[in-house]
Design a protein around this nucleic acid. Structure first.
Length: 607
RNA sequence: CGGGGCGUAGCUCAGCCCGGUAGAGCGCUGCGUUUGGGACGCAGAAGUCGUCGGUUCAAAUCCGGCCGCCCCGACCA
């Protein structure tokens, strides 16, 4: 095996003079984040269209390395690699119902016979179809299958280089179990494996509770790379370990100190149509006010859209996802002024008192019933109530936690302030349960002869997105400094000068390294040293070896980490061995992080 | 889908306001000099100015439609 690898290595073109993919002195303006700037400048990726990228040889090598790490970690938890198609017949998506639930984000096309086809957004439907033919008995469970395959999602807005693209390769695995205990076991195995994967990529990943969304199911976690370039907001606490996507974050609701109930009083508040204005006008904190926000809820084809009046404390915002769940709507959008007026409400002075319950669904945050003597609208232009109390003066159809967590909100575990940060979703894990096996009829026969739906889980990691996060984390002013596990090559070999001796020695070392199986990128171009060093810095290989007349006169070749000042001279005859040692050491340093990773067992109790 | 910006040589951009021979730097090709942190000289190639239409004697430039790309928001395994 080793010999075969060596031969393949030897045959691979690793000479920069013939390399496909140029470095750019300046990046095209369209790239934005450090990662996409660097990946474009260093010749890893090229954009073909919005959200569609070509991966040049450097990126392709890195992606293959990431895939190999994923493969090893999936195999380690009993995964079996396979491959499913990118183009699916519409029927399987119709069976699951997602053909109808998902809108323009799904890529749809027709074949020559006019048959509807779907570009894979993910592969639950195909796995479930396979279950129907392959799984018959409880004896065949549990199972775990995975593949690395292209997905297409017609994102309304691709952005951020490789962070949010329309076509991408994902490692997605699927667990099949007889019951929820089995699912839980495989889910926990993935949870731990994902932390190992992060460590091997050199990324610190934070697992946060998340919304299952269109996947269905109940329990879900996202694995986040914390960074300002992230598109998700997270509420985290380092001390308690609480970590949640802001969509589903909870926090302690501490009411303002209780007074004795004041009488309800109608007061004239001319022009005080915002919370800040009315609070100042009435001389109270915004925490003593109630804020009304109106949405139109879409309840599907069966029911007409309906106005939703939501009320949170004046200093807070609405969590639209939780509001949507509370009213069981399929979608929400901000209501237009006319729609609000049509239901008899007065924007800016709206009130839950005297609502027309036939036209409006009213929801209050669970903090509102605990809060006394609030300032709220009087449902009449330029008038508010003071001393309003839930139950006595107004009520709602639904009381639910619909306030959005915020920076400094009390941690639900210990009440200390939560921190809201941005993160990139590198991976996610979902407990699907019987969402797909139920609707598509994938069942097995249990010990007692009863037919039951297979209990499923689904687990994804974006391969290109992982590369983008690594590039983001390991970029500096000169380029990338990639972890040894992800770098396309371990070492860049630079030859300086055109003297016959330097050339000869560099060529010999290049061949010796290849023969020894070292992944080396050889800069044999006839360009100035400055260009070679600048390109080496940019491309991001972690180690650099230089052969020049100067190094030879000092007794060998120069070797060190990228951009390091601590360069050593190694005699030529020891170079291969020393470089191999250094590569090994680099891997060991990286893998030290595997020892002290978060695990499912060690995670904090969540609420 | 709403708001904003951009589209001129392979790349970065100027020219547009105020209509009249299409420019610079980098890159590329050839020759020579140079070789430890993006060298220099000489010579050269390279753009139907996104696209369609309008105004005009004349449009990169003014006007309109469309397309594409970027950013913010909405949206979103």
């Amino acid at each position: 095996m080793r010999r075969i690898l060596t031969v393949l290595n030897y045959l691979t073109n690793m000479r920069l003079s013939k390399f496909f993919g140029q470095t750019l002195r300046e990046a095209p303006t369209e790239s934005d984040s450090a990662s996409s700037q660097m990946l474009v400048r260093a010749g890893y990726i090229r954009q073909l269209a919005a959200g569609l990228y070509s991966y040049l040889p450097l990126a392709h090598r890195s992606l293959r390395k990431i895939e190999q790490i994923l493969r090893e970690e999936m195999d380690a938890i009993n995964g079996q690699e396979m491959c499913m198609p990118v183009v699916h017949p519409a029927e399987v998506w119709q069976e699951s119902g997602r053909w109808y639930e998902i809108g323009d984000e799904m890529g749809r096309l027709q074949d020559r016979r006019g048959r509807d086809l779907v570009l894979a957004m993910t592969h639950e439907e195909v796995v479930t179809t396979l279950c129907k033919s392959e799984i018959r008995s409880y004896r065949q469970l549990p199972q775990m299958v995975y593949h690395m395959q292209t997905k297409f999602r017609d994102e309304p807005r691709a952005r951020g280089g490789l962070i949010r693209v329309r076509e991408f390769v994902m490692k997605d695995s699927y667990t099949l179990d007889a019951n929820f205990d089995g699912l839980q076991t495989q889910y926990e195995a993935h949870y731990d494996a994902y932390h190992r994967i992060g460590a091997r990529l050199g990324l610190k990943l934070v697992a946060v509770q998340s919304d299952p969304g269109m996947m269905g199911g109940k329990i879900a976690h996202e694995f986040m790379y914390i960074s300002p370039i992230g598109e998700d907001s997270l509420a985290i606490c380092e001390e308690t370990g609480y970590a949640s996507n802001l969509d589903v974050a909870t926090f302690r609701k501490n009411p303002e100190p209780a007074d004795t109930p004041a009488p309800l009083k109608r007061v004239h508040t001319p022009g005080q149509s915002t919370i800040d204005k009315v609070a100042t006008f009435c001389g109270v904190s915004t925490r003593r006010t109630g804020k009304m926000v109106f949405f139109m809820g879409d309840f599907g084809a069966e029911a007409p859209p309906k106005l939703i009046a939501a009320c949170v404390r004046g200093d807070m915002e609405i969590n639209e996802l939780q509001l949507r769940y509370a009213v069981k709507a399929q979608a929400l959008r901000p209501a237009e002024a006319e729609e609000i007026a049509a239901a008899g409400c007065v924007p800016g002075y709206a009130s839950l008192r005297d609502l027309d319950r036939t036209k409006v669904i009213s929801v209050v945050d669970d903090l509102i019933p605990k809060s006394m003597n609030l300032v709220v609208g009087a449902n009449e232009h330029d008038w508010h109530f003071i001393g309003a109390n839930y139950g006595r003066d107004f009520t709602a159809d639904i009381v639910a936690p619909i306030a959005l967590a915020y920076n400094g909100a009390p941690d639900p575990i210990d009440g200390k302030p939560l921190r809201v940060v941005r993160g990139v979703e590198v991976g996610n894990i979902f407990q699907l349960g019987t969402r797909y096996s139920g609707s598509m009829g994938a069942s097995y026969t249990d010990e007692t002869g009863v037919e039951r739906p297979i209990v499923m889980g689904s687990y994804g990691i974006g391969v290109g997105r992982a590369l983008a996060c690594v590039a983001e984390e390991y970029s500096d002013d000169y380029g990338m400094d990639l972890p040894i596990s992800v770098a396309p090559y371990h070492v860049v070999l630079v030859s300086l000068g055109r003297s016959g001796e330097v050339k000869e020695k560099a060529e010999a070392l290049y061949h010796a390294l290849l023969t020894a199986g070292v992944e080396v990128l050889y800069d044999d171009r006839e360009v100035s040293p400055g260009i070679k060093f600048a390109d080496a810095d940019l491309r991001g290989m972690p180690l650099r070896c230089t052969v020049s007349s100067r190094s030879l006169s000092r007794g060998g070749v120069e070797f060190g980490r990228r951009r390091s000042k601590n360069l050593v001279i190694i005699p030529l005859e020891d170079a291969v061995e020393r470089i191999q040692e250094n590569i090994t050491d680099s891997f060991e340093a990286l893998h030290k992080r595997l020892k002290d990773l978060p695990t499912w067992a060690s995670r904090p109790a969540t609420i």
